[in-house]
Design a protein around this nucleic acid. Structure first.
Lengths: 225, 225
DNA sequence: CAAGCCAGTAACTAAACAGTTACTTTGTGG
DNA sequence: CCACAAAGTAACTGTTTAGTTACTGGCTTG
């Protein structure tokens, strides 16, 4: 740990070299491989991604990729893990305790939508992972321990809304989560076929804003008494 | 046309041979290649699908595949076109004129859900096509002419419901269609990662039935006055 | 009934691919 | 300051892949 840190920030005899991005930097190399792999896997899927393309994108020698990650499959798993960690981390920072139940639900619906909108690579990786029936996700002990923060917040809001007589008694928090996620995921992940078939560009600003309002409306309508 | 028909049903001098699956049968060969390719592309995506695997699955020589379809990409396009034709054909056979507006909407929501449930290969092909930003769908003149029957039926039901004062005035038929489709698509296409993460098998009968009821409920709740 | 076209086979090819070998360079701790 | 470990490079290897070549066998039409 200390060794890596010393190497990374380059405190050597003559400081010049290290400051200007020093020739060696394991952490930066690892990070750039991971970033390049995320792009490549998101754009082409597991079957279409090319190890050589990842190396080129990362500006490193292919050998390094095997040095840091083992093989293509382990690299893919690292990418998937990082993507999940990203959304789970973002979920943690939401604070709803000051909000009324309806406002809180609306906030969570918008959070999910906006996260999907800003992280198309996450949606794409989910698609690839599901094509393979969660083969790598199921292998990952790290990810199986990483529970969604959203479910707890959702259950809490449902309880508060129920107590106020606003929401129905029998709402399943999982159903509520799936509803919000489904509306955002489908619109974005299928935007290309949908835009082509309906002759209407779903990626245009007004359409995106209209769909965000729609998600909030549908989500709330589905749980109200 | 007449030539093909004569060849297909094998009316030759000595009828025996032709009856027992005659050695030559262009239409059957073409169909079995298409069926095998549909499976292979659905299971592995465009990047992961293997031409040799398709030939083996179809029980034909790889040469025939190039003979009938040109190359891998054109074969994929044929598979995609057939898949869309399948759902559009099924849509045509729905008759809603005898139903009340709410019943009709519920019927369409259930139709969409059940079609997705019974045709996982269609969902998978959509996923692959969207990964590639509708690259092949956009090329296909056949598919761009093949409009969804559902939108017309939906608009009609919305109009009737609006006239009866049941539905809101400002419902966008496209939003309604996307809502129904999103709820079905996401649940099924992402069932593997979702089941893993939430520790609850979404493919179990009671869960599937519960989700069907949920789709109908949400869809109707989203348009009611 | 023969001429020619279409269905079908097997073996091949060139390129792309994941992964490896053998080597050099750089930084650090004893 | 040197020994050793980790970071990095270039060129290679065996395999898999899409697509082709050169051929055989069977059906239909004039």
């Amino acid at each position: 740990m200390e060794k890596a840190q010393a190497g990374a920030r380059g405190r050597n005899r003559n400081g010049e070299r290290a400051e200007r991005s020093g020739q060696r930097d394991p952490e930066r190399t690892r990070a750039s491989i991971l970033a390049a792999a995320t792009q490549e896997f998101a754009e082409n899927g597991m079957g279409g991604a090319r190890v050589d393309a990842i190396a080129e994108r990362a500006g490193i020698n292919k050998r390094m990729l095997y040095h840091y990650f083992g093989d293509k499959e382990q690299l893919y798993l690292a990418v998937l893990e990082e993507a999940y960690i990203g959304i789970r981390t973002a979920e943690k920072s939401i604070n709803l305790s000051d909000l009324e139940p309806e406002e809180g639900i609306a906030e969570l619906a918008m959070f999910t939508w906006r996260y999907f909108l800003e992280h198309p690579e996450f949606l794409s990786l989910l698609g690839t992972e599901n094509l393979h029936r969660a083969r790598w996700l199921r292998q990952s002990t790290r990810l199986k321990e990483l529970h969604s923060q959203l479910m707890g917040k959702l259950s809490d809001l449902l309880e508060r809304g129920r107590a106020k007589g606003l929401f129905r008694e029998d709402v399943d928090p999982l159903h509520l989560y799936l509803t919000m996620a489904a509306l955002g995921y489908f619109y974005l992940s299928n935007q290309y076929t949908l835009s082509t078939i309906f002759g209407r560009d779903l990626a245009e600003r007004p359409n995106l804003e209209g769909w965000e309002r729609h998600i909030v409306h549908v989500t709330l309508a589905s749980i109200r008494r």
